[in-house]
């Protein structure tokens, strides 16, 4: 019986340590992911699809990790200001216009961007909104 109590206390403390070790960045990532998902559903899913699959040739998929990585610093600009150029996604050309979302604050842009780049098979990790704000100041 005594052994049992000691064991339980031991395991409980291990669990506590693990939980509290979850650092601030992980918590931020979870917050961004959950808010970003709501924004995605409300503003992006109509064109880019529930699973980021896109819509025919009208809207590109968001599953091209190589493209997303290569254009890391431009993603925030695409999201806030829209896009109207030829983009090559998964080897296919897309040239329809993506609308701007001026109503999105920097933090919203950061959240939906983090959601996209960590969903649909992408895994690019956390980007804080201060970084996104900087990217947005450098949009062309």
């Amino acid at each position: 019986m005594r052994n049992y109590i000691i064991n339980s206390i031991f395991f409980l403390s291990i669990i506590t340590i693990i939980v509290s070790c979850q650092n601030q960045e992980t918590i931020d990532l979870q917050n961004y992911m959950s808010n970003g998902k709501d924004i995605y559903k409300a503003k992006c899913q109509n064109c880019h699809g529930e699973n980021g699959e896109g819509l025919g040739q009208l809207a590109p998929p968001l599953t091209d990790s190589v493209f997303l990585k290569a254009n890391k610093t431009r993603l925030a600009c695409f999201i806030k200001n829209g896009a109207n150029e030829t983009l090559v996604i998964h080897g296919k050309e897309y040239k329809e216009k993506m609308p701007a979302f001026p109503e999105l604050a920097d933090i919203d842009v950061a959240q939906v961007m983090v959601f996209v780049t960590n969903s649909f098979g992408n895994k690019q990790g956390f980007v804080p909104y201060t970084k996104v704000s900087k990217d947005l100041q450098n949009c062309k």
């Binding site: 899913q45 109509n46 064109c47 819509l55 025919g56 009208l58 809207a59 216009k97 609308p99």
Partner: peptide, 15 residues
């Protein structure tokens, strides 16, 4: 065709 709100969803579903 330039509708950016409900039309893509409607036509995705109709498709």
């Amino acid at each position: 065709t330039s509708c950016t709100t409900i039309c893509p969803t409607m036509h995705r579903n109709l498709m």
